[in-house]
Design a protein around this nucleic acid. Structure first.
Lengths: 223, 223
DNA sequence: GAGGGATTTGACCAAATGGTCAAGATGCAA
DNA sequence: TTGCATCTTGACCATTTGGTCAAATCCCTC
């Protein structure tokens, strides 16, 4: 007796997944993100992902046809989320506000999804075997578009003349560093982004560096 | 080359390595750096490292007792080189000059030894299983010392008030990013640090960002 | 050039691992 | 409850891989 679901009995056909499939695929993808980000693609084992997800290896392979299939799906899953903040950069907004908000979002992503950051870093460092085509098309298009936004801000004298692409790289580098190298940061400071105070402090420092770097003051002082 | 003629039949004891040992160990370490940085620890295979080094797997294991031993030695080999630039930061020098030079050196390291950068990044991202103790002692001591240098520059009004540790993290993040994410950078710009023009351009951009970030102009301009 | 240690390698082994398969367990509509 | 599709698993397989070992081959000293 299922007291909760008043749903009908169409279990899985036409794109919809059955309740059990939905649940298990999610469990697997969560476990996979954890394993892949922790050990890398080669270091992760299907057995351990299955154990993390609370099922047998055989059962996991009932939901995903291969280790590589799990990996690809995990990557695809996070990629959208990962690139979302940049898309919101608004040409008509105030540069300090817009870039400050972008940096803040990126750091929050590093704080909330450090595993996703490391998975992405791992993939790219290994030569981006799975996502290179996406980088060369979608991401390139996005970066070109947002570079133009920055270029316009420069042209209208709102920010100092800088190379927009290098500015984007700098933001990516600094914000993701706190997730990817969190172990090193913890070894040196005793804290990482999971500490709310350290998160605030990092946010303030990084934002301040970059905004000053492009000729703007910090977000609090506006004149 | 230590003591070529005076040696007895003991070719390698007491620290000195035979000519053949010297050569082969170097070949192995070079191949290991390439493999480990390209595939990560788990992804690399002893067989392929041996092939890269031009010898059989058995022979490689005659020189290094295990895969882990090769990995540790490779790491140790690059670690000194990797941290060297920071050590040269001179408290008595001009901040713009000193930091500019440090950034320049770090970018040049990324250009010349991208594999070392990726190996290091990989190690840290996996939780620094091998070098965590070093990070917590030697590196922490070094960072604390150089933070004090920066702190002094702030106290004497030479640079803007910033968090010294975050400044160091920012420099590491931005400079190493160009090595670790070179595939992504190449996908987006068509170039990487192996291109001399792009190297110059990157150097100028990153230096400019950070020096402006701490309240200094670029090296050439002053107001 | 002979003797002996240093170097090199192929054959081999055990463990780990990705994946298959058939059989059993479970959930669900009638 | 019954019948069928979905779900789950243990047993099993082939391959990869780190590491061992004894037998060669090389190199150097005397």
């Amino acid at each position: 007796m299922t007291g909760l679901s008043g749903q009908t009995s169409q279990n899985f056909k036409q794109g919809g997944l059955s309740r059990i499939q939905e649940k298990n695929r999610n469990l697997i993808l969560e476990a996979a993100l954890s394993e892949f980000s922790k050990k890398g693609y080669s270091g992760a084992t299907v057995e351990r992902i299955a154990a993390d997800a609370g099922m047998s290896k055989s059962n996991l392979l009932y939901y995903f046809s291969s280790k590589e299939a799990i990996y690809k799906e995990t990557l695809a899953h996070i990629l959208d989320v990962w690139l979302a903040p940049l898309k919101t950069l608004n040409p008509d907004g105030d540069p300090a506000q817009e870039l400050g908000e972008y940096i803040r979002q990126k750091i929050e992503m590093s704080a909330r999804f450090p595993e996703a950051s490391r998975l992405f870093a791992n993939e790219v460092m290994q030569g981006a075997p799975q996502i290179l085509p996406i980088l060369e098309t979608d991401l390139k298009r996005l970066v070109t578009e947002k570079s133009q936004v920055i270029e316009d801000w420069i042209a209208s004298g709102k920010i100092r003349r800088v190379d927009p692409v290098h500015l984007i790289f700098t933001i990516w580098a600094t914000t993701q560093h706190y997730a990817d190298f969190s172990v090193q940061i913890k070894a040196l400071t005793g804290k990482d982004l999971s500490d709310p105070d350290f998160l605030k402090e990092t946010e303030a420092s990084v934002t301040s560096f970059i905004l000053h770097g492009i000729g703007l003051s910090g977000p609090q002082e506006s004149d």
